[in-house]
Design a protein around this nucleic acid. Structure first.
Lengths: 157, 157
DNA sequence: TATTGTTATACTCTATAACTATA
DNA sequence: TATAGTTATAGAGTATAACAATA
């Protein structure tokens, strides 16, 4: 019964970690799908586009494509595509730089800033509603616990 | 200054919910990517294939395509594709049923069961390691808190 | 040579819809 | 008619690699 060995060496504690992970994954995925759907329905946009705008809103002086690529954790080609769309919609603009003519600064347009603020406020409302059942202490605690995951991820890679 | 209104009406508590969600999303995504990568490297498989095998392992009598589709929360065409691959690899088999010749039962082959148990044990090891910094009480608490999210999701849909 | 950004291409995962064969 | 499953197709979202311009 070698198969059984694989099972019996797992403690309850191990199964608890697996159960937690499966729930974490399914909950997060479902919330994410829900948010994608509402972003599309209510604002005709996507999560990657929203995320790019959010980065620019946090950096009023703009970011280069390379910086956006690193912050969004996607490769350069994708940033080009998303930026093209947002520029066509008039929400961001590319600005050339004299210092380095290979790159440029991507910045929110006034319209882009207004539009993003509207979307961000609505988006935040969805999230607040979602965590309405959690106390502030619980939110803080889980927020801090999650930081530990990233540590373990780096260690094992 | 209408823009400021959107900002000032948000309490610290609201921002806390948003911060928590962003961390939840980024942590989960990074862990998921990490697991996809290791499943590919070490077992040459993908998360959807692993998930399908996991469902069959939990149901030794097998499941119909329709049942798999519902449990995996993907549409039928996708289940057909994944099942085709797994059948080609000899890990699952389709069995016709006399009662209803439109459908069949998908079941793990002995080889599929052995292979899945190997992968599942390794996979569980990754997860256990990941949550090593959490106490059993913390795991239970977060597991239960996450259940609340699904409730709020259903309400707002 | 190295770096920034673009283009072209392909892969994974998903959905939709038309189709078949049974019921 | 309705249902189980398949096929064909399309669309996100991502990566890789070849390329042009500049450093």
């Amino acid at each position: 019964m070698t198969d059984l060995d694989l099972e019996t060496r797992l403690s309850d504690d191990d199964h608890q970690a697996l159960k937690l992970w499966l729930r974490l994954l399914s909950c997060t995925t479902r919330v994410e799908d829900h948010i994608r759907q509402r972003l599309r329905q209510e604002f005709g946009t996507t999560l990657p586009r929203f995320d790019l705008l959010a980065q620019l809103e946090r950096h009023p002086d703009g970011l280069t494509m390379r910086e956006l690529s690193k912050r969004l954790m996607v490769t350069g080609g994708n940033v080009t595509g998303i930026t093209d769309q947002l520029e066509a919609e008039g929400l961001v603009q590319r600005e050339t730089r004299a210092e380095d003519r290979r790159s440029f600064i991507v910045r929110l347009t006034p319209q882009g800033r207004r539009q993003f603020k509207r979307m961000a406020a609505t988006h935040e409302g969805w999230i607040v509603e979602l965590f309405a059942g959690w106390t502030p202490a619980q939110k803080t605690q889980v927020h801090d616990l999650l930081a530990l995951l990233k540590t373990h991820l780096k260690d094992s890679t």
